[in-house]
Amino acid sequence: MDIAGIIIKNGTNDYTLWLPEIPVDEPLLNQIIEKYANSGCSTRGNAMDILQEVKDVFY
């Protein structure tokens, strides 16, 4: 698993795409993932599936 990117909503129509270089074995990252594993939602698929999901969420 690698983090490909994180989308952050800063305000109305104001977003940041963060492409962090965080190793997957970083203990703090694992703690955050474990803490929030059952909140929100996620989508898994190929690149086009993910792009469509992002488009659907924002438009």
Rank of each mutant, 00 (worst) to 15 (best):
M1N: 06
M1S: 14
D2H: 10
D2T: 07
D2W: 05
A4P: 00
G5I: 04
I6F: 12
I6S: 08
I6R: 04
I6P: 04
I7R: 11
I8G: 04
I8C: 09
K9E: 04
K9N: 05
N10K: 14
N13E: 14
N13F: 04
N13V: 04
D14H: 05
Y15L: 14
T16P: 02
L17C: 11
L19F: 04
L19K: 14
L19Y: 03
P20Q: 07
E21R: 02
I22K: 00
P23W: 00
P23A: 11
P23D: 12
E26I: 01
E26F: 02
P27N: 15
P27G: 05
P27L: 14
L28H: 15
L29S: 01
L29I: 04
N30S: 14
Q31R: 12
I32K: 12
I33N: 01
I33G: 01
I33C: 06
E34Q: 11
K35M: 12
Y36L: 05
Y36D: 08
Y36H: 11
Y36W: 12
A37S: 11
A37L: 09
S39V: 13
S39C: 10
S39H: 09
G40E: 05
G40W: 06
G40I: 01
T43V: 14
R44Y: 12
R44H: 09
G45T: 01
G45M: 02
G45Q: 01
N46W: 03
M48I: 12
M48E: 15
M48W: 03
D49Y: 10
D49S: 13
D49Q: 14
I50V: 15
L51H: 09
Q52K: 12
E53A: 14
E53M: 03
E53D: 15
E53S: 06
V54K: 00
V54S: 04
V54Y: 06
K55I: 03
D56L: 13
D56H: 09
D56I: 05
V57G: 03
V57N: 06
V57D: 04
F58V: 09
